[in-house]
Amino acid sequence: MNIIAKWYYRLGAPNWFYPLTGKMLPWIAVIFLALLIPGLYMGLFTAPADYQQGDSFRIMYVHVPAAWMSMFIYFAMAVAAVVALVWRVRMAEIMIISSAPIGASFALIALITGSLWGKPMWGAWWVWDARLTSELILLFIYLGIFALYNAIENKQTAGRAMSILTLVGVVNLPIIHYSVVWWNTLHQAATVSKFDTPSIHIDMLIPLLLMAAAFQFLYLWILLLKMRANLLEQDLHCGWVKKIIWDRRKAHNGGN
């Protein structure tokens, strides 16, 4: 058996997945902090102020990575949905349902920071800008997936229904995005000015990339934590969970 297939099966088995990710978690947290601290420091202090927007552009270092993550997570969920539907991998379903609230949170962060950024730039808390509008729609799609999963009692059915909805969403998202962009160019009146892909200075770019990488590890960290929690909850009566509890109790009593 080649090494990829071996890992694939191990990650698909809860009794392997749980202890393995338990060992990975602290490392992921360390990498996240190692990327976040220099990223934030450079972004907030050493990066030069923008000649048009002054210091208020610095919210970009949270806003842009959060917006990227909200899209990346949906893409990751769609890949997991294919895996879940084609190979019936339960772990992929757990990954989707654990990702949906994280993706929704990133979308919400992007919307809130975008609106905070918009106040000094556009003079309004909310502008029906194409990107903000599609981000809002993305948030609603996330919430729909989450609501569907919670509405179905049988978690096996819920997982498959959610996977189908995720795939329907990934087919529709580009259509929605481009129609919103088109709609926005038609109703130009509201937008004051759009910053058309400004060429970004290298001193501004490096902290942005650091923050983007940090957010990736933040996602991985929260995802693994949530997947572990969901696994324990679903498999409460399975042998491997009982064994973990048994081992913990034994270690605890031994310590005393």
Partner: peptide, 29 residues
């Protein structure tokens, strides 16, 4: 698609618009 996903549910009255309305946006536009 949304109807098919929610057909078996007891309380699904508000769920359907929640699932489907985002996908209606391009047609509306």
């Amino acid at each position: 698609i949304g109807v098919a996903l929610t057909t078996g549910l007891q309380k699904s009255s508000l769920l359907l618009p929640l699932l489907v309305l985002p996908f209606y946006i391009p047609v509306l536009i």
